[in-house]
Design a protein around this nucleic acid. Sequence first.
RNA 1: UUGGCAGGUUACCUUAUCGCUUCAACUCCAAAUUAUUUGAAGUUGAAGAGGAAAGUCCGGACACCAUAGUGCUGCGUAGCGGAUAACAUCCGUCCGCCGAAAGGUGAGGACCAGUGCAACAGAAAGCAAGUACAGUUAGGCUGUAGUGAAAUCAGGUAAACUCUAUGCGGUGAAACGUCAUGUAAACCAAUGUUUGAGGGCUGCACGCCCAAAUUGGAGGGUAGGCGGUUGGAGCUUUUGGGCAACCAAAAGCCUAGAUAAAUGAUAAGGCUAGACAGAAUCCGGCUUAUGACCUGCCUGAAUU
Length: 133
Amino acid sequence: MDSKGLSFPKKEKLKSKIVFEQLFVEGKNINAFPIKLIYTKVDFEDSTTLKVGVVAPKRKFKSAVKRNRIKRLMREAYRLNKEVVFNKVEGNYAFLFLYLGNKMPNFNEVDESLNKLLMAFLKKESHEKNNSQ
RNA sequence: UUGGCAGGUUACCUUAUCGCUUCAACUCCAAAUUAUUUGAAGUUGAAGAGGAAAGUCCGGACACCAUAGUGCUGCGUAGCGGAUAACAUCCGUCCGCCGAAAGGUGAGGACCAGUGCAACAGAAAGCAAGUACAGUUAGGCUGUAGUGAAAUCAGGUAAACUCUAUGCGGUGAAACGUCAUGUAAACCAAUGUUUGAGGGCUGCACGCCCAAAUUGGAGGGUAGGCGGUUGGAGCUUUUGGGCAACCAAAAGCCUAGAUAAAUGAUAAGGCUAGACAGAAUCCGGCUUAUGACCUGCCUGAAUU
């Protein structure tokens, strides 16, 4: 299992309904407006280390085209930034990116915000590991 | 030319880099088996949203619920003829209405079956009243006048009940089938019986089915995999039939198949500066949203 390139195959997508519910119940949050990251530690049946889901709420964006666009931007931004976290964390995680803004974003905004989130995630996790030791 | 009417076409493009989904070929690994299958990974190639994919408003296909059945009720449709798998759609045509015209538009069957309703005027538009004058002995009847579209005589009205003709069973891909996991008193098959209580099938009636127990089988919920699922009332061209909708024949073509849900991101350039908007079982329509372009027709008015 390598992280070579900037790929984002099907395996790394979050699909299970159970994991989604688990995320909303016991997930930890990090905010970097307009995106919010919810994550939790999970053991996957296959050997994937990270699985990622993406959400654009229907309440704020009525048009399916706009929701699609936001989700695509977030997926693309994750694909380009995944090196930040890949192979640098221990254990398996499920990520969920929630778009909280009210306006249509452009790619740079999403990219910047998502990068911040991943950095913050790394910091928090390593900090907690040190504390527990 | 402005304006009006009808119809059609199209849905930013090009290059580079990095990605996503499906399919095909090949390479390699694992398992079963003995030359094939299944699964994982990789490489190469091909394909990858719409005219409305939308609203879910009609009509079907398909699936299950008795084999989908009978009567009542209920709901839909409504000139006439045709097209179609079917329709509330489409085509032709008659009539009414709108328009100067091109053209548009119509809930256009029946008030000689019954019931109901009716502004103003009028005594009165029914279940109660009856003005004035004339004729007649009187009661009563008849005629005229007056109001009104219409006066014990009918007429108007069926986007009033109703009648006539005709059509309609219900649910809806989260249907349904199947696989693995596997703990019920729940399920299926066979045998089989009393009350017919109760339940199901449509609101009601009929009718039908289930329902004790025994034996055997293996299931249900929840989450998941596969099928259903994309080759079809399919598309293009030609010929023939028809005023047309459309039909027939021949030749060629394969054209999305996701499932927390694929078709994207960045950079550069171009122009007219890119509207409305994202497939979710599949078709035929209707309605609504919307950028650009093209063709034909109409002259009432204004200008030249």
